[in-house]
Nucleic acid binder design. Structure first.
Lengths: 149, 149
DNA sequence: CGTGAAAAGACGTGCTG
DNA sequence: CAGCACGTCTTTTCACG
């Protein structure tokens, strides 16, 4: 992981379909050198994959929420995962330290669909309470982690 | 936006560097037809861009948190954006309806760096309170929106 | 809106400094 | 590790169903 690798990752963050030659001219390397580094980063797991960023609104998802889950007793992350994986509206979820046990990020077409998805999660018997914060407007949305340093 | 478009987006979500020929054989179209559709989706804004998914841990980011911000008086989303954009540890942020005014997703190298970043946000005079939930473990992490339907 | 062909260019490997 | 050169496969554009 040197400066060249970080520069390459920066290029790929902005455009993952850039050619190796393009990236090379930006970071000052030849195309084959860039490819070798990208392959190495992928093999080492630094690069998890390449995806497309889709506008949720264009696909009809206009409602977003963060839901805090409070559980009864000790619920394992695996049990939580099993329940949440069944709900397609769940985009990401983490166990957290603090008031709630888990924080779930959800995206749905509308409030009705969101409500139904939350109901489905709450059917798990060990869910005690859920607190939903509906997103009003996205203020910041960065590709991934902060600066490459 | 028909089934072919959705199938193409599904392929690109899994691997944004797939060739048009590869995508075509998966969705049952020729390479040129796929390219035309991808170009159209990009032009219409459905596709916002192509990025690489980086393992935060491999880059040294091992601490993640969701921070709820409570503000004094009416703070505009624009003012919030100005403050949060200055903090590189902020990955995403939204204004929310519910108890807090905003929810901020942050990634940092360690707890110390996270603490300093939160302090920097709290310097804004209209921040009344902040509640931080530190992520213990990621349970679910999906590329983007739920299923393509 | 689809296919198919043909030119221009990128990829990916092997070799050398 | 980097660069260069090579053959192969893709991209990109075109005319046409």
């Amino acid at each position: 992981m040197d400066d060249s690798d970080r520069a390459i990752l920066g290029c790929l963050l902005r455009n993952a379909r850039a050619t190796y030659a393009q990236i090379g001219s930006e970071v000052g390397l030849s195309a084959s050198a860039v490819k070798r580094r990208v392959d190495a980063l992928t093999r080492r797991g630094v690069i998890r994959g390449f995806t497309v960023v889709i506008d949720p609104d264009a696909l009809g998802w206009r409602t977003e929420a963060y839901v805090q889950l409070y559980c009864r007793g000790n619920v394992s992350p695996e049990a939580l995962q099993r329940v949440l994986a069944e709900v397609p509206e769940v985009v990401s979820a983490s166990t957290v330290s603090g008031s709630a046990d888990a924080l779930v990020h959800m995206v749905a077409a509308d409030v009705r669909q969101l409500e139904r998805a939350i109901e489905r999660i709450r059917r798990a018997p060990w869910i005690e309470q859920s607190v939903s914060d509906i997103v009003l407007s996205r203020i910041i949305e960065r590709p991934t982690g902060p600066q490459l340093g």
